[in-house]
Design a protein around this nucleic acid. Structure first.
Lengths: 207, 207
DNA sequence: TCCATTTTTGACCAATTGGTCAGTTTCTGG
DNA sequence: CCAGAAACTGACCAATTGGTCAAAAATGGA
């Protein structure tokens, strides 16, 4: 007898509206009324689907990382160094760039809910493990040098890639400069992965 | 006859208090009254030295990047690839880590004052030029490969280093893991810089 | 000591906003 | 077509906060 709505669909609809607003104006500058208007709902309705503004952004962050994880995990296991670099290229070219800046805005020192950092930590932990395995495989196959601990190497590559992604996001996203930078970075990483061991750092002069 | 105060000194004092508050609680969560209390002043007094909260944070961002620029520009010109990597190590180990997250929080989509991005763009432009020169020199001296455009290479290294810095900042700042990651990344970069040309990307297989 | 001038103060204000809830609308099944 | 339950609404509220300004305090010189 009662009215029935698809709760999940409504949540998704609100999330879409919220994401659009947040990306456009930033988290703090976005008002719940903005989101309501964008979603074609009254403000009160939002609270039937999300307990608070924090819950809303948190759910967006979750969805964001879940999707990236999904995208990455379906890629085929690389059998060569080149194939892995191609994965890196895809990762850094991935869509949803606008979310990145937003996430930084939200999860700064002012955001006290620990679930925020949990999501991010969890994602990077997973990715480090995922790629560490692949590094180990590639090293075993002689595709890359095998000097470093795969996990440390994975974390290093992730961090650098994240920076690359960030800079591509924040500065001139689609320009030639961006492309040149991206390829220069990938070349650097690829060469570094393949290069002979112990080649770097002050160690070399010492040893 | 009148009372006289050292305006610059007061500004610096307020900036110090503000920075401490912002770092601790985040920009948005910090109240002007918090800053006043931390500085040992009344709220109204703050407005005698800074026009607004935005001006205050903006001045902090400016000081932050000015200082980094200063720190980097006084380093001696590297004559070897190893020396350059050592510079990178210093750059990424630099203090004031806490400011980084703050800057991301502040200069997100919600911050409309263009001076914010100007400061950052300006800094990275300067750094790219600075290092591009050094790359060109090192390439001329045969210390690093000379295939890439020095400026693109510089921007790539900067982006990757920024990511590294960021990850070191946000996750386990002082742990062994962080050290391992940092050294893995530096080794990778060093090897990549020195490595033979055209070694990477799908090109290799094709060429 | 006293004045002129600068500096400081903090109560106050206007504007804002996340969140609530009593009342209204919409839908379903009979 | 109706009743009842679910869903929706938006005026309202309590709390907050950046910023102001008239009054008070502090200072240095005469």
């Amino acid at each position: 007898m009662p009215k029935i709505v698809d709760k999940e669909k409504m949540r998704a609809q609100i999330q879409a509206a919220a994401q659009s607003c947040f990306i456009q104006k930033g988290y703090h500058a976005t008002r719940m009324s903005d989101i309501a208007k964008a979603a074609g709902l009254a403000k009160g309705t939002l609270y039937l689907y999300f307990d608070s503004k924090d819950e809303l952004i948190l759910s967006l962050v979750q969805v964001f990382f879940d999707r990236i994880r999904q995208d990455i995990s379906v890629l085929p296991r690389p059998q060569t160094a080149e194939a892995f670099v191609e994965i890196l290229r895809q990762a850094v070219t991935m869509q949803q760039r606008e979310m990145t800046a937003l996430i930084f805005e939200v999860l700064g020192p002012g955001f006290t809910d620990p679930r925020g950092s949990q999501i991010i930590d969890g994602f990077f932990d997973w990715l480090a493990g995922h790629w560490a395995e692949q590094f180990a495989d590639l090293a075993r196959m002689g595709q890359i040098r095998s000097g470093s601990d795969p996990r440390a190497l994975a974390r290093a590559v992730i961090a650098m890639l994240d920076g690359l992604f960030l800079h591509l996001t924040l500065f001139d996203p689609e320009s030639d400069i961006a492309t040149a930078r991206r390829e220069a970075a990938l070349t650097l990483i690829a060469t570094g992965l393949r290069g002979e061991e112990g080649a770097a750092t002050g160690m070399r002069a010492a040893g």
